[in-house]
């Protein structure tokens, strides 16, 4: 029983990472209705920027917020330069552009900062909380930050005009134009926000997994899984989905004999596919009804 509780708790701790990533994925999905493959690499790149700033002697929190700002601007710039010209291109071309961005960021990070792993500081400390050894101060801090971020996003989308305009642009771009919403800029803003959230995720994740150009690959897949389990359209669902994936992964790794550490990812993905079988649009998603 104690083992079980332990696994749940440490599952929640890793789940916090996935929840953070899933949140960033859902953000961009809401803005552009695409899943961005390059999201993880963008987050990794942001984290390297933070690392560089800290190396240059900036205090942690200044580096933290500066990185968020840089990432936001970077996200907007990427949308305006890379994706705006592709506006009329087929959807599949967009996905290829994501793959291109993935390759570019991964390779650039390796070129600038090389592929050796680097440790990244945590503002919360690594000491264990509640004297149990189950969950560290950093894990707790990460979960708290994710929840705060979620709350802020909720307020932004429900109670600000610009949030309303972004939702309108995503759900019905033609109608949004007809009420004067600048849809192109809303999409760019969505990219900026997603990049900023990704940066937060990266900076929170890096102290746990260490910083290196490939750190985000598996996390991105888990993040996708969390987002999809959560239904893709609900930031809250994404966070819950992320935690759920973390717990399931841990329990499967512990209790299913053939799984072990190597197969954790496979099992988690299999479970997600299973969830999709019964709830094809995720646990908190809504089926889009199209009129004929």
């Amino acid at each position: 029983m104690e083992l079980f509780a332990h696994q749940i708790l440490s599952g929640l701790a890793t789940g916090g990472i996935y929840a953070c990533m899933a949140l960033a994925i859902v953000m961009i999905y809401q803005a552009i209705h695409h899943l961005n493959f390059a999201q993880g690499e963008m987050a990794m790149f942001s984290t390297f920027i933070a690392w560089q700033l800290i190396e240059w002697g900036f205090p942690y929190w200044i580096a933290f917020f500066l990185t968020i700002a840089i990432s936001f601007v970077g996200g907007v710039v990427i949308e305006r330069t890379v994706f705006k010209p592709l506006h009329r291109a087929p959807v599949l071309a967009h996905i290829v552009a994501f793959i291109a961005l993935f390759a570019i960021f991964n390779s650039l990070a390796g070129f600038i900062w090389d592929f050796t792993i680097k440790s990244f500081p945590t503002p919360f400390g690594q000491q264990s909380l509640f004297g149990s050894g189950l969950i560290s101060a950093h894990d707790t801090g990460m979960i708290v930050v994710t929840l705060v971020l979620l709350g802020l996003l909720f307020l932004f989308f429900r109670h600000t005009r610009i949030g309303l305009a972004m939702r309108a642009a995503a759900s019905n771009p033609d109608s949004a134009r007809l009420v004067g919403v600048r849809v192109g800029w809303m999409i760019a803003l969505g990219w900026g926000m997603a990049a900023a959230i990704g940066a937060v995720a990266g900076m929170l994740i890096a102290p746990v997994v260490f910083l290196e150009p490939n750190m985000m690959l598996a996390i991105l897949i888990y993040g996708f899984a969390g987002a999809v389990v959560g239904g893709l359209i609900s930031p809250g669902g994404a966070v819950i989905g992320g935690f759920a994936v973390g717990v399931v992964e841990n329990l499967a790794g512990t209790y299913v004999p053939v799984v072990g550490q190597e197969m954790k990812l496979t099992i988690a993905l299999a479970l997600i596919v299973a969830v999709l079988m019964f709830k094809p649009t995720g646990l908190f998603g809504a089926r889009l009804v199209t009129r004929v």
């Binding site: 999809v228 990812l265 993905l269 596919v273 999709l276 094809p280």
Partner: peptide, 29 residues
């Protein structure tokens, strides 16, 4: 099962298959 999945979900499910394949090939059984 793919019949029940719409585009994005199908993409993720197939992607999961791709990720799982090398691990399954390496696995003990």
């Amino acid at each position: 099962p793919a019949l029940r999945l719409e585009s994005i979900y199908l993409a993720l499910a197939t992607f999961a298959l791709a990720v799982a394949t090398p691990q399954l090939l390496k696995s003990a059984p």
